[in-house]
Deep mutational scan, measured.
Amino acid sequence: HEITLHINGRRVKLRFRDEKAAEILKEAAKKGLDEEELKKLAEELWR
């Protein structure tokens, strides 16, 4: 699955395995994680 989040006016595509991962990524984006941090988090969730 993929999700596209808008971060600092940019579109960031993240891959994720399940809905739980999608929710975690959305929450992290709301908390203000930047693009690099979100990509790292997405990679961690993928494993």
Rank of each mutant, 00 (worst) to 15 (best):
H1Y: 14
H1K: 09
H1W: 12
H1Q: 11
E2L: 10
E2I: 10
E2R: 04
E2W: 15
E2C: 11
I3T: 02
I3S: 01
I3E: 02
I3A: 02
T4I: 15
T4Q: 07
T4A: 06
T4V: 13
T4Y: 10
T4N: 07
T4R: 04
T4L: 09
L5V: 12
L5H: 01
L5S: 00
L5P: 00
L5C: 05
H6G: 05
H6F: 06
H6I: 15
H6L: 11
H6P: 06
I7N: 02
I7H: 03
I7V: 14
I7A: 06
I7Y: 02
N8R: 06
N8L: 04
G9A: 03
G9Q: 03
G9F: 00
G9T: 02
G9K: 02
G9L: 01
R10Y: 03
R10N: 08
R10F: 05
R10C: 06
R11C: 06
R11E: 15
R11A: 15
R11P: 15
R11W: 14
V12L: 08
V12I: 13
V12F: 03
K13N: 09
K13F: 03
K13Q: 11
K13E: 07
K13H: 11
L14H: 01
L14E: 00
L14Y: 04
L14G: 00
L14I: 09
L14T: 02
R15Q: 08
R15K: 12
R15A: 04
R15V: 07
R15T: 04
R15D: 03
F16M: 06
F16T: 15
F16P: 04
F16V: 15
F16K: 03
F16R: 02
F16C: 09
F16Q: 02
R17E: 04
R17W: 14
R17Q: 10
D18K: 01
D18L: 02
D18T: 12
D18V: 03
D18M: 02
E19F: 09
E19G: 09
E19T: 10
E19N: 11
E19D: 12
E19A: 14
E19W: 10
K20R: 13
K20T: 10
A21Q: 07
A21C: 06
A21R: 02
A21K: 02
A22R: 15
A22S: 08
E23A: 11
E23I: 13
E23S: 13
I24E: 08
I24C: 07
I24T: 09
L25F: 08
K26P: 00
K26M: 14
K26W: 10
E27I: 09
E27G: 08
E27F: 04
E27Y: 05
A28R: 05
A28I: 04
A29F: 11
A29N: 05
A29H: 13
A29G: 06
K30F: 10
K30I: 13
K30R: 13
K30M: 13
K30N: 13
K31C: 10
K31P: 01
K31N: 14
K31A: 15
K31R: 14
K31S: 13
G32V: 04
G32Y: 05
G32K: 04
G32W: 04
G32R: 04
G32H: 05
L33D: 05
L33T: 07
L33G: 08
L33K: 08
L33F: 13
D34H: 10
D34M: 10
D34N: 14
D34K: 09
D34G: 12
D34C: 09
E35T: 09
E35S: 07
E35W: 12
E35Q: 06
E35R: 06
E35V: 13
E35L: 13
E35G: 09
E36T: 14
E36V: 13
E36W: 12
E36Q: 10
E37M: 14
E37R: 10
E37C: 05
E37T: 10
E37V: 08
E37I: 07
E37F: 10
L38T: 02
L38C: 04
L38I: 13
L38A: 02
L38D: 00
L38S: 01
L38P: 00
K39C: 05
K39W: 11
K39Q: 11
K39H: 12
K40D: 11
K40E: 11
K40P: 01
K40F: 12
L41G: 00
L41Q: 02
L41I: 09
L41K: 04
L41Y: 04
L41H: 01
A42H: 02
A42V: 04
A42Y: 04
E43I: 06
E43R: 05
E43Q: 07
E44R: 08
E44D: 14
E44G: 06
E44H: 09
E44W: 10
L45M: 10
L45T: 02
L45V: 03
L45A: 02
L45W: 03
L45Y: 03
W46C: 03
W46A: 03
W46I: 04
W46G: 02
W46H: 03
W46S: 03
W46K: 01
W46N: 04
R47W: 14
R47Y: 15
R47H: 15
R47S: 13
R47I: 15
